[in-house]
Simulated scan of single mutants.
Amino acid sequence: MSENLPNNNTTEEVDLGVLFNAIGNFFNKIFDFIGGVFKAIFSSIIFLIKAVIENFKLISIVVLVALLVGFGLEKTKTPAYYSEMLVKPYFNSKYQLVSNIDYYNSLLESKNYESLTSIFDISVDEVKTINKFEIDIGPETENQLIQEYDKYAKSIDSIRAQEITFEDFVENRDLYSSDVFNIRVESSKRDIFKNLSTGFNTTFNNEYSKKLMRVRDSTIAIKKATYLKDLRKIDSLQLVYLKILNQESEKGTLSIGVQGLLPLTQERTKTQEYELFKNEIAIRDSIRSLDELKITESVYYDVITDFSDIGLRSNELTQKYSLIFPILAILIMFLIYVSIKVIKFAKEYEG
Rank of each mutant, 00 (worst) to 15 (best):
N195T: 05
L231W: 00
Y227L: 03
F345Q: 13
R214E: 05
T203Q: 06
I340V: 13
N182V: 08
Y300W: 06
I310H: 08
L212R: 01
S178I: 05
V98F: 08
L312T: 15
V170N: 08
V14R: 09
I281C: 07
I101V: 15
K341Q: 13
I45V: 15
F193Y: 04
F56A: 10
K251Q: 14
E171H: 06
N315L: 15
S155N: 04
L116I: 14
T129L: 01
S322C: 03
F27Y: 11
T165H: 04
V338H: 08
T141P: 09
R214Q: 08
L73E: 01
E250H: 12
A282W: 07
T78Y: 10
D285A: 12
S249P: 08
V65L: 10
T117C: 11
K94T: 13
I46W: 02
Q162Y: 03
I137R: 07
I159A: 11
R313S: 14
T296S: 11
D291W: 06
N25R: 13
G311L: 12
I295E: 10
R268K: 11
I101G: 01
I164W: 01
L145H: 06
S60M: 12
N100F: 15
I220D: 01
V87K: 03
E140Y: 11
I336Y: 10
S44R: 02
I287S: 03
F181Q: 07
V180A: 04
F38C: 06
L16E: 07
T265A: 05
G36C: 09
K151E: 09
K151Y: 03
F31E: 15
N205P: 05
E148Q: 11
I164D: 02
T305K: 13
S255E: 14
L317F: 15
V98Q: 14
R216C: 00
G35N: 10
T76S: 13
Y90M: 09
S249Q: 15
S178R: 02
I159G: 09
K341W: 08
I222K: 04
N25C: 06
I220L: 01
T141K: 09
I49P: 00
D121S: 11
G199I: 06
N131S: 11
L68F: 06
